[in-house]
Design a protein around this nucleic acid. Structure first.
Lengths: 194, 194
DNA sequence: TAGTTCTTTCAGTTACTACTGAAAGTTGGA
DNA sequence: TCCAACTTTCAGTAGTAACTGAAAGAACTA
C-alpha cells in the first residue's frame, strides 16, 4: 500500500465470478429501464438482456432465479421474446428442460424489431394520413370547399407528416432489407459516412 | 344518379366542416395509438396531434372539449408538451386565456424529440456499457481471470452492443441540428451503397 | 400405465400510471 | 383592494398492465 498502484492483483476465481455477475446485472438493469421507456415491458427487456449478455443458454429456472420473477411470468415473457424472434428455444441432448439463447448479432436483432414495429406502428399511420388526405381532396369536398383556409392548413400538415414518415420508412426499409445480407456493410458504410 | 359518377358535388359549408373534423379526429386517434406504443402517453400524443393537425392555436378549453378530458389533465399535459418544446404557449393580444400551437415543421419536432431521448435513454446505456467493460478488463480482473470463457463471452457481447449504440448515436446526431437534410443524407448514403 | 419432470395457462391480485375535480393560486382590470 | 377570468396543483380514484401461483397439460421413462 505504499505507492499509488491502483491495479488489483489477479483476483481469485470466486471474485471474478462475482465481478462478472455484478457487471452483467448492471447491464441488465439499464437495458430493462431503456426498454420500458421505448414501450417494451421492463421484465421482457431484462430477460432478453440476460440471455444476450451471458451469451449462454438460460433455462426458465435460471431466468426466474436471476431476475426474481414467477414461473408464469418467465414462461409468458420467454414465449413473447421467441415470438418476436430475438431469442430462440434450444433443446440440449438428453435433457428435458428447455433453454433459451439470444441472437448474437445486435444488428440482426434490431432489424427484426424494426421490421415488426414498422409494420405494426408506422405503416398504419401512413395509411391513415393517406386516408385523411383522400377525405379532404377536391374530389371529395368540391373545388370551392377545398379552398377553405382550415382545410388547406390541415392538408399542409398532412403533407408535412407524410413526407417525414416516408423518409423514415425508407431508412427502416434499408435497414431491414440488409439484415441477413451482411448488416456489417451497412455499419461500415454509415461509420465511414459520418 | 343515372351514371357511375362517384364525384360528389360541392358540399355545403357545414358538411365541409364535418368532414374536416372527421379527418382530423382520425389522425388524432392514430397518432395517440402510435404514441402509446412508443412510450408516450396516449392523451399527450393526442393533444399534440390536435395542435399539429389543425395548425390553429388551441385554448385549454378547446383541448378539453375536443378530447373529452378534464381541466387538470389538459393543463398538465400541455405543460409537459411545452417542456418537451414541441408545442408553444401563445398569448393573444387583449385576451387573457392562453393558446397553444404546435411547431409546424415535423422535422424540427422529431429532431427535438430525438435529441432528448438520446440524452435521456441512449447515452446512459452507452455509459453503462463502458462501465461494464471497465469492470471486466484485465486491469480490474488480472490477466488470467480475464481469459475465463464466461468473461470473454460477456466482453464480446458488450463490444457488439457498443458498436451498435455508437452507430445509432451517430445517426441520431446527424438528425439533431440539421433535421431534414441530415436524415435525407442518411437515406442517400444507404440507397447509394445498396 | 403410472410416475416424473418440466411447461403453459389463467383467474385473481398487485402495482402503477393516468385522470378527475375541487380548491388554491395567479393575473389583470375596475 | 376586490372581483372575475383563467391556470395550476394535488389528494383521491379509476383504469390498465404486469405479475403470481396453483392447477392443468405435455412429454418422456420405466
Amino acid at each position: 500500500m505504499t505507492t499509488a498502484t491502483l491495479e488489483k492483483p489477479a483476483a481469485a476465481s470466486n471474485d471474478v465470478h462475482q465481478q462478472l455477475r455484478t457487471a452483467q446485472d448492471l447491464f441488465i438493469r439499464r437495458w430493462g429501464e431503456m426498454g420500458a421507456t421505448w414501450g417494451i415491458n421492463r421484465t421482457m427487456a431484462e430477460i432478453h438482456a440476460l440471455c444476450y449478455i451471458t451469451a449462454t443458454p438460460q433455462s426458465t429456472d435460471d431466468v426466474m432465479e436471476r431476475l426474481h420473477i414467477s414461473r408464469g411470468n418467465a414462461s409468458m415473457s420467454l414465449r413473447a421474446l421467441c415470438d418476436w424472434g430475438i431469442i430462440r428455444r434450444l433443446h440440449k441432448r438428453g435433457e428435458r428442460r428447455e433453454y433459451f439463447e439470444s441472437l448474437g448479432d445486435v444488428w440482426e436483432m434490431f432489424s427484426i424489431i424494426a421490421a415488426e414495429r414498422k409494420r405494426r406502428e408506422m405503416d398504419p399511420v401512413l395509411e391513415t394520413i393517406k386516408q385523411c388526405q383522400h377525405m379532404l381532396n377536391e374530389a371529395a369536398l368540391g373545388k370551392a370547399a377545398a379552398k377553405q383556409e382550415s382545410v388547406q392548413l390541415t392538408r399542409q400538415r398532412l403533407a408535412g407528416m407524410e413526407e417525414f414518415m416516408t423518409v423514415t420508412n425508407k431508412i427502416f426499409q434499408q435497414f431491414i432489407g440488409n439484415a441477413r445480407s451482411g448488416l456489417t456493410r451497412v455499419v461500415k458504410v454509415l461509420l465511414k459516412a459520418f
